[in-house]
Design a protein around this nucleic acid. Structure first.
Lengths: 205, 205, 205, 205
DNA sequence: TATGAATGAGTCTTCATTCAT
DNA sequence: AATGAATGAAGACTCATTCAT
């Protein structure tokens, strides 16, 4: 049966990447279950055959897309610069991160929903997201440690922080509960984050 | 074409409910996209035809199932009793709620994933969950008010609390990050919740 | 559109022959309908394109293979040496031929089946086999005549003999009826052959 | 995945049988590999879907056809009546069987070739034919024993006889070697058969 | 000459939905 | 009201053949 082939020529590599890029886009916008491989081929301007030479199936294209694009899209936190974090600027830094995260979330609502939905069902997708989350957690933990924060339950605390930021981003972008004032929610979240870390730095002096 | 009919006879009503109950179970366990209407009919012990007399399509059965069963399953918080909440017992009460929530989560992992996944994609399902969340938020806000908690940003704070509890429940169902100690996570979350509400009761006396 | 080209350079001729040899082998072992031209190209270590420069299609390769290899494989009878055949040694000679035929049948069962199967369907293949059979028939008829056998119905008799030997070879390759003792079958066949020719030599003296 | 269903209603049973009858006919006439399931559905005047409800795949239809029709078509010998066979009438009876077999061979050449071809490739088809052959062999052996024929190598001899008759039928219907006089071939075959059995009855008195 | 990437028509197979009974 | 056989459009996937390099 059809072996998956890896393109060698520069041209073909470009084609494979185009299939990932355009195919991922199409899947995200139309919905994984509403799009067929023929649709993807048409959308990418290639033949159906070539799809099956470079990918095992539709899922495979999607997974590649997730791998490639989840970075930029899902976890802006990853790009935290190595700023000096102190008990004095932590509130400001966190609010900055949150605002940037919200702004950078460039995906369409539909695309985001697709990704969320698939991450619930597909082990591979879930794994990619989990790994990304782990990466950020470790990064943030290290930054905090380098800045003199104490280690008590630091892992769990950072995990909580990331969850809070994630929830916030998703909500401000999509949910929009009517009786929630999102500016207030942001401020409360920042306060919370600061609070979470308080015992890790307050006895520092 | 086939109008959806509402059963009148007691017998028929029972049959419709059986389809919802069994169909929802099957969808949750096998996955929405892995189950056909013929499968559902077989599983419910009815004919294919009858499905289309009581329901528009597969989605319709699922929605009805979500409406009927999401309560018990997804939001144990709804069952908070009207306990007296004070600054002294709030920590205990919250921990109790969380532990109960985790324990009461009787769905299989697969079912949980299906529901989560569908709630990302399907407006109706999302609406049901949103409404449920709103209901709990309001309930909890009221309880807190009745217990003398001040109203500053109370809506947003309760919203945050519910998110935190939700995240915790989901995680214990699947993520299971290896480097996270879940007992610690629970305690930190409880501390956080207490902290969130502190300024709403600390000046109470 | 692509004309089939006949290679001129020694190198190219070798390549064409390699395609026939390896391609025929692959088809015989995997089954004509289970092998694609791309498979053949890969197996032969050449490009897909080149296949279509030397051959019209897959069938063409197969036919060439049959032409080239059927001799050795299918009709060991062809190699009958010009022994002196008399009424006294005919039984011995025939048994020898049969045993050699069975032994020489070096093809795999699978290959044998493929060839048989294709010979039923493909006029060209059938023609090649028919011609081979005709050739053997004539050869054997001539040998017998040279050895003083009378001509009465000799063609038909030799034809029968060849059929009998062929059947025997095929059976030892696959049928293998359980309740048949194949040693007995061989002896009975030899007796039969001798019998067939009896009236062509018994009045000889 | 699609379970094969067995029709219950009389109407459906008729439909399944129609698919076997017409499908087998189409496959035989057009060639197994030249016919798709969609072709069969069209030819039978049914939908593609129903094909997959009653059959696993194309091969399944073909096998059913072989089971159903091989009797009438391939082995007219099966219908040997329980005539009294003696050394005096055996020649007449055998010639009669052969002539009837040739006459009864109602299949088209194409169909016959398909069956032969498939029996080389497909274990199930081969099995059906083998079993049929075994059945005839046993039947004939028993008839001969009942008529006082001795048992020496009787199995193997009858096997040879059946092979001879089979070969003869196939040839007279299709091959038609030019330099073979088929009337002569028939007579020689009859003589041969009588000869084969001679030692089983000649010492009878 | 030779390559192997690309094509797209064609095949298999499923399933939501209808309809005769 | 209920049945379940039947439909056929649609999706997944293959492969003989072409063509730019």
């Amino acid at each position: 049966m059809g072996e998956v082939r890896e393109p060698i020529k520069r041209n073909s590599i470009a084609k494979k990447n185009k299939i990932i890029a355009d195919g991922f886009e199409l899947i995200c916008n139309q919905g994984y279950h509403n799009v067929s491989c023929v649709d993807i081929a048409k959308y990418c301007g290639v033949s159906t055959g070539i799809i099956y030479q470079y990918f095992k199936d539709k899922r495979d294209i999607f997974i590649e897309g997730v791998k490639l694009y989840s970075d930029n899209i899902m976890f802006p936190l990853l790009k935290i610069e190595n700023k000096k974090i102190t008990k004095d600027n932590i509130e400001f830094i966190m609010k900055d991160i949150i605002l940037k995260s919200i702004k950078q979330n460039t995906m369409t609502k539909k695309a985001h929903q697709e990704l969320m939905s698939m991450s619930c069902l597909d082990k591979k997708v879930l794994k990619i997201f989990s790994d990304k989350e782990l990466e950020i957690t470790e990064k943030l933990v290290n930054i905090l440690k380098h800045n003199g924060f104490r280690e008590i339950n630091l892992n769990e605390k950072v995990h909580l922080i990331i969850n809070l930021i994630d929830d916030l981003c998703h909500e401000t972008v999509y949910h929009k509960h009517q009786n929630i004032n999102y500016d207030v929610l942001i401020d409360e979240t920042v306060k919370l984050i600061v609070n979470i870390l308080k015992e890790n730095y307050e006895n520092d002096r």
